[in-house]
Simulated assay, not measured.
Amino acid sequence: MNGRLAGKVALVTGAAGGIGAATARLFSGHDACVHGLDLLPASAGAVHAHTVIDIRDAAAVETAVAAILAREGRIDVLVNNAGTDVFSEPLELDDADWERCMALNLKGAWHMARAVLPAMLAQGAGSIVNIASVHAHRIIRGAFPYPVAKHGLLGLTRSLGIEYADRGIRVNSISPGLVLVPRIEAWFEREPGRREEQTALLPPRRIGTPEEIAYTALFLASDEARFINATDILVDGGRSQVYHD
């Protein structure tokens, strides 16, 4: 084995599609033993093993992680990718949708981190990569409360990264911009002309791919990034640096 993650055990949430599936495939291609977790079944050939799980359920997360540890003996990498869009006019948002947004985009990431950290601390090494969003850096009208959760995810990243830095743990995040995942493709299908409109807003005049986010995750998960900690990397083609309404 000579991949960049050779000998490492990696967990990827939201691994059934989009950025999660691309990350699982890339990690596998770099010789990681990849365990996917998702509400949906796995994409063919993307992972070593797959667990159907709701990361909002803390007990289920603990059980799943314990089973992976029993099987593999260690966990080296966690990619917290699972999440969902929840967009609303603030005063029209009901409590159930608020809770769903926070649970899937923030609390679930904490459930996963809390479950893997004891093993990482015991082995004196580990990398957690949280998939945040450009919404954690720039506010777009009509997107509430999604940015609230993603700002929280940046706080989780920085807090945990500093808390455990001297014990071999690195915690970083990636903030993707617009990426061609299935829900974005569906949006473009529903609204003709939207693809062209969004492409024109991006400095490279193209939309990002899941693989481009996955390569950033690969770098952060690898030993090449061993002095990078409590940091967020924007992967948005420069979109967040341009002033747009």
Results as ranks from 00 to 15, higher is better:
196 E>N: 01
123 Q>Y: 02
110 W>V: 13
199 T>W: 00
145 P>T: 11
175 S>K: 10
220 L>C: 09
201 L>S: 12
234 L>S: 15
214 A>K: 01
198 Q>E: 09
139 I>V: 15
221 A>R: 03
210 P>K: 07
198 Q>A: 14
106 L>Q: 08
172 N>R: 13
117 L>F: 07
173 S>H: 06
172 N>L: 06
141 R>P: 10
181 V>S: 13
213 I>D: 00
121 L>S: 09
208 G>Y: 03
202 L>R: 08
178 L>P: 09
188 F>W: 05
128 I>E: 03
124 G>A: 09
162 I>L: 15
150 K>C: 01
187 W>E: 10
116 V>K: 10
168 G>C: 04
179 V>E: 04
149 A>V: 11
208 G>A: 08
159 S>W: 09
105 N>V: 15
112 M>F: 01
173 S>M: 09
154 L>W: 08
163 E>F: 00
170 R>I: 03
220 L>M: 06
193 G>Q: 05
206 R>C: 05
164 Y>M: 07
186 A>T: 14
190 R>E: 12
193 G>A: 07
112 M>H: 02
155 G>V: 07
176 P>D: 01
219 F>E: 03
226 R>L: 04
113 A>M: 12
124 G>Q: 09
167 R>P: 05
236 D>I: 12
158 R>W: 14
237 G>K: 07
125 A>Y: 10
148 V>G: 06
216 T>D: 00
203 P>S: 12
182 P>K: 06
131 I>M: 01
133 S>A: 09
236 D>H: 11
234 L>W: 05
107 K>F: 03
173 S>P: 02
117 L>N: 09
226 R>P: 07
219 F>D: 07
165 A>V: 10
236 D>Q: 08
232 D>C: 12
167 R>S: 15
125 A>W: 11
142 G>E: 03
228 I>K: 05
231 T>D: 02
180 L>M: 15
135 H>Y: 14
206 R>S: 06
225 A>Q: 04
132 A>F: 04
165 A>L: 08
181 V>F: 11
108 G>P: 11
181 V>A: 13
115 A>K: 10
109 A>D: 11
119 A>G: 07
207 I>Q: 05
195 R>A: 03
177 G>K: 11
234 L>H: 02
183 R>N: 12
196 E>V: 03
149 A>Q: 04
120 M>D: 09
183 R>H: 14
126 G>K: 01
214 A>S: 02
207 I>D: 03
202 L>D: 00
156 L>M: 15
193 G>I: 00
205 R>S: 15
117 L>K: 06
177 G>L: 13
152 G>T: 08
137 H>F: 04
124 G>D: 11
166 D>R: 14
112 M>T: 04
174 I>G: 10
119 A>L: 04
199 T>S: 04
160 L>F: 13
133 S>C: 00
165 A>Q: 11
129 V>M: 05
156 L>Y: 10
114 R>T: 08
196 E>L: 01
131 I>H: 01
197 E>N: 00
111 H>Y: 05
214 A>T: 09
203 P>H: 14
221 A>W: 03
220 L>N: 14
129 V>W: 05
205 R>H: 15
118 P>C: 13
127 S>P: 06
207 I>L: 14
157 T>D: 01
184 I>F: 06
125 A>E: 15
204 P>H: 10
155 G>L: 01
113 A>H: 01
130 N>Y: 09
118 P>A: 14
169 I>S: 03
178 L>H: 13
229 N>T: 13
227 F>A: 14
188 F>D: 02
108 G>M: 08
132 A>L: 04
139 I>S: 12
